[in-house]
Design a protein around this nucleic acid. Structure first.
Lengths: 149, 149
DNA sequence: AAAAAATGCATGTTTAAACATATATTTTTA
DNA sequence: TAAAAATATATGTTTAAACATGCATTTTTT
């Protein structure tokens, strides 16, 4: 289904504006699919985003600020997102000895094994979320990078 | 700045996944710019989305359900979004005589004149939000449509 | 070294999103 | 036509996002 059909709109100010609406619409569409996917595992897309960052870093420690700088949504309330993950025992936190303001965040064994469970089906999600060829996917990324210039 | 730089990540499961992250990141980026733009006018992006739909329809009446079907975010809480717009006197609501369940929504004069004020600078926003050529913008829309197949 | 600025994080508060449920009405089905 | 299903909206409740502020610590400036 094209954007025009999805939002029942046939006229746009210009093709650039149409592309913007399409980005916003597609982002919502992706997030809805992700929500369905993560729901049985008891986490949200944002929480998954943090767990993935922590695994990428594991077994190194990482601060909250560093996590924030790597997130997709730069406005995230990392402090309370981490609280929720700690509450689920997926993440642990301790004071950083070198910088007493900062905290050392680490993914727990339980968090790692949750991610492993997800790994097996995450490829299904990728293909469900994006049916482009390699070349097309690369083109898309290039255009998105360029559109933010 | 490329996605890799923006989220400090150089490896992705596959190019499709990278494209997905880029869509989500770019959508957040756009929404942040829009928020800045709309802030002085006292409305949010979603509220603007509704006002635009209502102007497109004006002077015809339109139901809440029909508005919802045209919105970018299909999960929108249209009922309370309309309440807020009515509170600002930008929109009016009455019971639909043909279908007593439904409501007839209409943009007010005040709503129309707000949109007119926005029109003059909205093109600046478009160009700020998307620096692609016509051809590239079309390509981008095509790829996004295709990625949702 | 003292003062000023910046940083990392927590937390209070307001606002909105998410989710479920309720109600009235209309449409469909049997 | 009576019963069942679907529709349009409102609203209660829980949860999270948004925004601001505060505090301790570190870094920079003078």
């Amino acid at each position: 289904m094209t954007l025009e059909e999805e939002i029942k709109q046939s006229k746009f100010r210009n093709v650039q504006q149409k592309a913007i609406l399409n980005i916003l619409f597609t982002s919502n569409w992706i997030q809805n699919k992700q929500k369905e996917f993560f729901e049985p595992f008891g986490i949200t897309g944002q929480q998954y985003n943090i767990l993935r960052i922590l695994r990428g870093q594991h077994p190194n420690l990482i601060s909250g600020a560093e996590i924030k700088s790597r997130m997709l949504d730069k406005n995230s309330d990392v402090s309370r997102l981490l609280d929720r993950l700690i509450g689920k025992n997926l993440v642990s936190k301790s004071q950083c000895p070198n910088d007493k303001r900062a905290s050392d965040i680490l993914i727990t064994e339980s968090g790692l094994s949750l991610l492993e469970k997800l790994d097996s089906s995450i490829n299904n999600l990728d293909t469900k979320l994006n049916s482009l060829s390699e070349e097309e996917a690369n083109q898309l990324s290039t255009l998105l990078d360029k559109s933010r210039d």
